[in-house]
Structures are given as C-alpha cells and as structure tokens.
Simulated assay, not measured.
Amino acid sequence: MFGDMMGMMGKLKETQQKVEATKKRLDTVTLEEKSNDNLLAVTITANRQIKKIAIDDRLLEDKEQLEDYLIMTLNKAIQNATSVNEAELAAVAKEGMPNIPGMDSLFK
C-alpha cells in the first residue's frame, strides 16, 4: 500500500511538471481574433496575454466606435484563449490523474 502511495505521489509530481511545461508552451501559442469586418485584429496568447492590436485607420475617425470594436474583439479573443488554455491544461491533468471512479467527470 505504501508503495502505491509513493507511486501516486510520483505521478502527481510528474503531472505537475507537465502542467507547468504546458503553461510555458501556451505562452507561445497565439490566436488571432478579428472583428466581423476585419477592421480590428487582436493577437493573444493562449495564456491570455495581448501581443498585438491592429486597427484600421477608418476606426480612428470615431472614438466610440473604436472603443466598441475593442471591447467586442478583445472579449472574443480572451474567451477563445481561455477555451484553448483550459482544454490543454485539463488534458494534461486528466492524463496524470490516478484512476479514481467518478473523477473523470470533473475534466469534461
């Protein structure tokens, strides 16, 4: 029994290391979100760090419109990045979890 516990602890530590490596890798995964008319584009990492915002000159003429575009496009970008982030981390965590009945439903 003690050996099983040590094996499980080792597996959990290994999983923790994989999660940390995945977090670092997600810093390099970039997603691009554009407004419906392509006047605004946002590049974001899967760890939700904004890397670039490209604004068409036509949006600079109307401050309120630009603000609306930024809010909508940034929110979509953050939502997509969060989905990728959560899916990647859940996959790594699920892979490293011991087979405990009922636990698999937590990672769906």
Rank of each mutant, 00 (worst) to 15 (best):
E64R: 11
V19P: 02
S35A: 11
I50S: 02
Q17G: 00
D57N: 11
M8C: 12
N99S: 12
E67Y: 04
V84G: 01
K76H: 10
D56F: 04
Q65K: 14
G3N: 12
E61S: 13
R58N: 13
N75L: 02
M8R: 14
K18V: 00
T82G: 02
T73F: 04
Y69F: 14
A41T: 12
E61H: 11
A46G: 05
T28H: 15
E67K: 14
T43E: 14
L89A: 06
T73I: 07
V84I: 14
M9K: 08
G102D: 05
Y69D: 01
M5A: 13
Q79W: 08
T28V: 06
K76V: 01
L31S: 07
L60K: 15
M5L: 14
D37N: 12
D57V: 09
P98C: 03
K94V: 00
E32T: 15
D56G: 01
K11D: 14
E61N: 11
R48D: 04
L40W: 05
G3I: 07
T73P: 01
L40Y: 05
I71P: 03
D4L: 15
N47W: 02
K34Q: 12
M9S: 09
L66S: 03
R25C: 01
I71D: 10
E32D: 14
A87G: 04
M103K: 01
L70Q: 07
P101V: 01
